[in-house]
């Protein structure tokens, strides 16, 4: 009985997981190709040059600003799709992971958190501030 129940759970988890994976792949797959091509034609380098002075504070190359913008506005899967073609170092990936782990998917998550009862602008500002602070600290300490 219990085993049968667990088996049922595994099956429904498998099918739900497959559906979620497909939904996520529907934008990570094209986004990866898009960013990889932007990178190959040198467009990312151009955007990166603009943000480079700020990104340097967190030990990141200017190119990574595209990854952060993607993560802030969309979500982590999109950011990872944008980051993979850039071939960053382990330290840089971990710093981006920390920054984006704290602040991501800001539009949707802030909407949800304000429905729970928290003030939207307060949540966004706290997250961005803590995220950049954490990124800068990790860069200094590592």
């Amino acid at each position: 009985m219990q085993i049968q129940k667990t088996f049922e759970k595994i099956r429904s988890g498998l099918s739900k997981g497959a559906v979620i994976s497909l939904k996520i792949a529907a934008y990570t797959f094209p986004l990866y190709i898009f960013v990889d091509i932007l990178n190959q034609i040198g467009f990312i380098t151009k955007i990166g040059r603009f943000f480079a002075p700020f990104m340097r504070l967190m030990g990141l190359p200017g190119d990574a600003s595209v990854v952060l913008l993607t993560g802030f506005s969309i979500n982590l899967y999109a950011a990872i799709a944008a980051m993979a073609p850039l071939h960053l170092t382990i330290k840089q990936i971990t710093i981006i992971g920390l920054i984006l782990g704290i602040a991501h998917n800001l539009f949707i998550e802030t909407a949800i958190l304000s429905r729970v009862g928290a003030k939207g602008y307060f949540v966004v500002l706290t997250r961005l501030f803590v995220a950049f602070f954490a990124g800068g600290m990790l860069n200094l300490l590592w």
Binding site: K9, G13, G17, I24, T28, Y32
Partner: peptide, 27 residues
Amino acid sequence: FHSLTGALYLTLKLSAIIIVLTIVYEI
């Protein structure tokens, strides 16, 4: 070709994580 293989590899990796996690959450 370089873009396509990279995108495919990343998609497979993410899917594997998502499916395993969904099963664990479900249980």
